[in-house]
Structure formats: C-alpha cells, structure tokens
Design a protein around this nucleic acid. Structure first.
Length: 280
DNA sequence: AAGGTCTCCTGAGGGC
DNA sequence: TGCCCTCAGGAGACCT
C-alpha cells in the first residue's frame, strides 16, 4: 500500500528518467483513472500532449510532474497504483489505465483497484490547486514540528484518526500509523487532546523515523501490487513491528499482538505496551 | 465547523 | 471444481 515512503521511491525513480522528456502522445485506457479531470480524457490528453516534463514533486502521498507551461500532472497511486517505465516495447499490463509515450521511453500508470488516478491542472505557489488542503509531510524541509504538535493536540478524536487525517500531517497511512504508535507505546484510540506536548512531538518523530527507515530499504510491499518504477518490490515489510503481526509476539515484551477493528479497517497493537486509555 | 461514516474497486483466499 | 463471502484501505462526498 503506497504511503509516503513508497511514493517517494516512485518519485525518485521517475525523476531520474523522465525530467526533460516530452510527452509525445497520451492514451487513456481507463476513464475512471482520469475522473478528477472535469473534461474527461479528451481534456487530459489535450492539455498534456506536446508538453515537456520539468520536474517530479511530491507532498504526502500525492505526486506531480511540473510541466513547461505552469500546468502540472497530479497523480495519486491510491491502493494499487504503479508507475512503470518501459524502454522497449512490452505487452500491455492487465490493468494498464494510462500510457504516456515520452521521447525514448513509455510511462505506464497501472492500477488494479482504480482508487488512484491522474489529472492535469494548474499550480499555485508551486502546489497543484486541488491539493491545497494537504498538510506538509515530515520530509518537507518546511515541516514545523511545533505547529503540527499543537494542531494534533487540538483535535477532539482518537490519535490514530488524527494521524491518518492528511490535512493535519500528510503521508501517513494505516501501516505507518500503527508502527509509529507502537514505537511511542500509545493506544490508537487515545484522545489526541490528552497527549502531552512532549508525547505528541515524540509520536511525530517516530512517524518520521519509521517512514525514513522504510525509505532506506525501498518501501513496504506485501505482494506484487506495489513496485517501484523498475518493477522491484520494497523490503520494509520484513521490518514491521506490529502491522499485520496479529498472533505473533511483540518484539519488545513478547505479548501477543492483537488486531482490532477501527474505521472499518484494521489496527494492530501490543496489548501490554499500548494500554487502552482510561475513560475520561 | 469539525468530526464521523459511507463508498468507490478488484482479486486473493477461505469455507464448504 | 466452483461459488459466495470477507478482506485490503485512501480520500472525497456526504451527513450530523
């Protein structure tokens, strides 16, 4: 599941190959993948064809290509999106949704579950207009630990819900939220407002740390759905401490990790290291 | 206003 | 073998 480290791996892979290349032709094989484009695939193709790629940028889990004319191509990988580069002709993937033919390679957006997509839009102050509400992520040089900590502590909901809210801090998904909470020994349902400033700062630092650790080994992957642009998987799944480890011993205290339902998805924690918060 | 829920989607895997 | 059920979850729409 692509969260910040996985998207950053893709960004780095792409920027090494596609900067300076021209988009010679565009093919949309799946209309749903351009659903954010008001004018549909015709507009997407029209605005993109002939443009040159000037840079590849990222904020949180969003990725975008800066074009040579103040427009950007905004992309989100969703649950299963991949950006694949092909230097030589290759058969179309089963879930190939968008094809960009560049100067000497082909960029393919492949997405099984179609939660992801791409669109061409304007940028304002260097940020695609439709993601103005997305907060800075911990890898952003202008990320401000103090103000994020303050904002987190002002929220009246459980801490995990706050970590997943991309308008407060971006880039964190279900996996890294659980990992950061485990490192900080905090229960996922602890009211955010009950964390001390020091605990909140520590939690943010742990989220930053776990994502940087994952980035070092090329991101997390459980299956073949996520791969970087060379088609290689990440290795961080081998380093996870709690996520997906229900029934296995906590690496700190040996207590059996449990899986609980949360927001119609899964949450993993150590029942001993991450005690349920006392009722207020 | 802010918090919480619903919904989109496809394939893997389990039970029988 | 095949059919049906559950599960995976990011984020925008929608409701309270």
């Amino acid at each position: 599941m692509p969260e910040l480290p996985e998207v950053e791996v893709v960004r780095r892979g792409l920027s090494a190959w596609i900067i300076g290349q021209q988009v010679n032709s565009v093919e949309v094989l799946g209309q749903r993948s351009v659903r954010r484009q008001t004018g549909g695939s015709d507009e997407f193709i029209g605005r993109l064809t002939g443009r040159r790629i000037a840079d590849v940028c990222r904020r949180g889990k969003y990725l975008w290509f800066r074009l040579d004319d103040e427009q950007v191509v905004l992309a989100h990988l969703g649950m299963s999106g991949q950006m694949l580069l092909k230097r030589t002709p290759a058969p179309d993937e089963k879930h190939l949704r968008i094809r960009l033919v560049l100067d000497d390679l082909e960029l393919r957006f492949v997405d099984q579950r179609t939660f992801g997509g791409m669109c061409v839009e304007e940028a304002a102050n260097g940020l695609p207009v439709s993601i103005g509400h997305i907060a800075r992520d911990p890898l952003d040089s202008a990320f401000d630990l103090e103000s994020v900590s303050r904002r987190i502590r002002s929220k009246r909901s459980g801490i995990k819900r706050v970590l997943l809210d991309q308008t407060t801090i971006s880039g964190i998904g279900n996996i890294y939220a659980d990992e950061a909470l485990w490192r900080s020994r905090i229960h996922w349902n602890t009211p955010a407002e009950r964390l001390s400033a020091a605990r909140a700062r520590e939690l943010i630092c742990h989220a930053d740390e776990v994502m940087r650790d994952a980035l070092l080994v090329g991101g997390t992957s459980f299956d073949s759905l996520y791969v970087n642009v060379n088609g290689e998987s990440g290795y961080f799944d081998r380093s996870l401490d709690v996520y997906g480890r229900a029934g296995k011993p906590c690496r700190r205290c040996g207590t059996t990790i449990v899986r609980e339902e949360f927001m119609n998805r899964s949450s993993y924690r150590c029942p001993r290291c991450q005690r349920r918060p006392r009722l207020a």
